[in-house]
């Protein structure tokens, strides 16, 4: 308990810890929201691929001294388009196409990074370094969060219908492809932001685990988005606490907390019903509404 007090004391005292907390919260929100759409569209593997494929973009941005977001976006979208192109123009299925494209991009990224920067930076890119976020990093993350919220609010109904029933959206004339690439672009931006907190290898966990956790608790999309963001935030803050207190790497700490929340949900959520402490009551209530008379009731009536 004293370590929690210590953590909050340190939080009030050190700017770097405050910056880390603010960034972690923002990343938790954005990855939770975008991650929800990624898992609902059955694109978890795509999320993993895009998050790895931005690596060469990050390296090029370092080399040219431009904003990392720009370099990463270019390569993220390029990877998404290449994956789509290979799958559409050959008999190769999408998951295989994803495997081929993203590993090539990732490999290219490694080589470019080693040419551009020292190995310390590579370590930070791979595993995250949330305790070293700068003010400009916070600003960039805030801008990305703004874009994510704007995108989801503006295109909520389009994201809903294309995630559930893309064919229908196509029949009424919605440009499903444009929306797909729009989502991929936003995903790339989120990836780059999350890169600071959890690192490139674990970005996919921030996208998928909180969303999967929320998915177990609700049957409503809007609730899922809010819950997922909340799980993302709780994981980020708690992970940061472990990272600071136990001197763990921030990325793995955050991801382990998220995974822990998933396990708890897996066991206790009503939708999963792994432990059915709520289900019998509900089933009983439903059964009462059925016009069928149970054998027990019948026996009672006979008496």
């Amino acid at each position: 308990m004293s370590s929690v007090v210590e953590f909050f004391t340190a939080l009030s005292r050190y700017d770097f810890l405050q910056s880390a907390l603010i960034t972690a919260i923002m990343v938790g929100i954005m990855s939770g929201i975008i991650g929800s759409f990624i898992i609902l569209r059955g694109m978890s593997l795509m999320g993993d691929a895009i998050s790895h494929a931005v690596l060469p973009g990050v390296a090029v941005a370092y080399m040219l001294g431009i904003n990392v977001l720009i370099g990463a976006s270019v390569f993220g979208i390029l990877a998404a388009m290449l994956i789509g192109f290979v799958a559409a123009h050959s008999k190769i299925k999408t998951d295989t196409s994803i495997g081929v494209v993203f590993s090539a991009f990732y490999a290219l990224g490694f080589i470019l990074i080693s040419m551009a920067e020292s190995s310390t930076n590579l370590h930070h890119i791979l595993f995250g370094n949330i305790l070293a976020v700068s003010d400009s990093d916070i600003m960039t993350t805030a801008v990305v969060l703004g874009i994510v919220l704007l995108f989801v609010v503006a295109f909520y109904k389009e994201l809903l219908i294309t995630s559930f029933d893309a064919t229908y959206a196509q029949t009424y004339g919605l440009n499903v492809q444009v929306l797909h690439y729009g989502l991929m672009l936003v995903l790339t931006l989120v990836t780059v932001s999350a890169l600071q907190t959890v690192g490139i290898i674990l970005v996919v966990a921030m996208l998928i685990t909180p969303a999967a956790t929320a998915y177990l608790w609700t049957d409503k999309l809007s609730t899922m988005l809010v819950l997922s963001a909340l799980v993302g935030v709780v994981s980020s803050i708690t992970g940061l606490y472990f990272s600071y207190t136990l001197n763990w790497a921030s990325g793995p700490a955050i991801v382990l907390v998220a995974a822990g929340l998933f396990v708890v949900s897996f066991i206790f959520s009503p939708k999963q019903a792994f432990i059915k402490f709520r289900a019998p009551a509900k089933a009983k209530k439903n059964a009462r509404q059925l016009p069928v008379i149970s054998a027990q009731q019948k026996a009672k009536e006979v008496h």
Partner: peptide
């Protein structure tokens, strides 16, 4: 995907989206 978090009302309402 029948596990999608959407209820009957919202699904019906998507008819107005176009």
């Amino acid at each position: 995907d029948l596990t999608f978090p959407v209820d009957v009302f919202t699904l019906t309402e998507t008819g107005t989206y176009g």
